[in-house]
Simulated scan of single mutants.
Amino acid sequence: MTILATEGLTKRFPRVTALDRLTVTAGSGVTGLVGANGAGKSTLIKILLGLLPPTEGSATVLGLNPATQALDIRRAVGYMPEHDCLPPDVSATEFTVHMAQMSGLPRSAARERAADTLRHVGLYEERYRPIGGYSTGMRQRVKLAQALVHDPQMVFLDEPTNGLDPQGRDEMLALIRRIGAEFGISVVVTSHLLGELERVCDHVIVIDGGRLLRSSSIGEFTQATQSITVEVEEGQQPLADRLTAAGQQVTVHGRLLTVAVASPGTFDIVRDAVCDLDLCLVRLEQGRHRIEDVFREEMANV
């Protein structure tokens, strides 16, 4: 199922072109929209929601035209904006109920949905406190809750991990994965942190300067390489030295070693070296491309 599509989508401002003839499609599941700050991610979302008119081209969201059916789109779609937009003097419950009513839910249904949604995002115990006293992580969860409260078919999450510490990012990413995997809601999530998208997305769209660089499944981005990754608790350098002496091409990355697979015998050589040095093997797996590597390759070819 195609959840969004653009054809020659262009948005020009007086001094900059935010989107430049962008043609792309995305299906159900969790789609990552990645690009540096200023790449056009937020502009694209605003056009898809009908909040900003395009200069040229066309777009559809769930088969609806943002130029003429913006209200229908916003009833069926949730939106978590990047910027801080929460009123400090109301509680998470009051705000989420209000947003549910704005999406067309009766007040009784809105209150029930708000309680369920705040529980899902981990704010049930804190739901009656004024938002002004919330941490950054809690405020991000409120923004996520209001995007989900009306049970949308899909959600746009614009930089949902902004300002979060590592634990907060992990928790937010887990929530995003649950939305797609357990709730059956399609997700479009933007980020400039490529490693995050690798962890939660089924598909990634890479844009730069408003132009499409690549649109591929995560599997195509992170396809297997002709190398293996080796992790040991300690003794990385002695292991690297032993493998190099055995004629293997080795690169050290902290606790990890990347060993080029010259032949099937490479696996036996690594095993024997680990045993001879009496090291504790944590991981031995097929190497895979990372999105960062592919992105750098795409940029080099532009």
Rank of each mutant, 00 (worst) to 15 (best):
M1C: 04
I3P: 11
A5Q: 05
T10A: 10
K11C: 12
P14G: 14
R15P: 13
A18M: 07
A18L: 07
L19Y: 11
L19K: 12
R21V: 06
R21A: 15
R21Q: 10
L22Q: 03
T23D: 05
S28I: 00
S28V: 07
G29M: 00
V30M: 01
T31C: 06
T31A: 07
G32Q: 00
L33E: 01
K41M: 03
L44K: 09
K46R: 12
L48Q: 00
L49R: 10
G50I: 04
T55F: 04
E56W: 05
G57R: 06
L62G: 15
G63P: 11
P66I: 02
T68Y: 09
Q69Y: 04
Q69V: 08
L71A: 14
R75A: 13
A76L: 08
V77D: 00
Y79P: 06
Y79C: 12
H83Y: 09
L86N: 07
P87M: 01
T93K: 03
T96G: 10
H98S: 08
A114Y: 04
L118Y: 04
R127L: 04
Y134Q: 06
T136H: 14
R139P: 15
Q140P: 15
R141G: 13
R141N: 11
K143P: 14
A145V: 05
Q146K: 10
V149L: 02
V149Y: 03
H150T: 11
M154Y: 03
L157H: 04
D158H: 11
D158Q: 07
E159Q: 08
N162V: 13
L164M: 03
L164P: 12
Q167S: 13
D170C: 06
L173D: 00
L175Q: 02
A181I: 04
A181G: 11
F183C: 06
G184C: 10
V188E: 00
V189T: 04
T190Y: 01
S191C: 03
L194W: 04
G195A: 15
E196D: 13
E196P: 15
R199Y: 04
C201P: 15
G210Y: 10
I218M: 08
F221D: 00
T222I: 06
S227E: 00
I228D: 00
I228N: 02
V230S: 02
G235A: 08
D241I: 10
D241T: 15
R242P: 11
T244G: 14
V250H: 01
H253E: 02
H253P: 15
G254L: 05
R255Q: 06
A260H: 15
V261A: 02
A262D: 03
G265V: 08
D268V: 04
D272W: 03
D272Q: 13
V274L: 01
C275R: 10
D276Y: 08
C280W: 05
L281W: 01
V282M: 06
V282T: 04
L284F: 15
E285N: 10
R288K: 10
E292G: 13
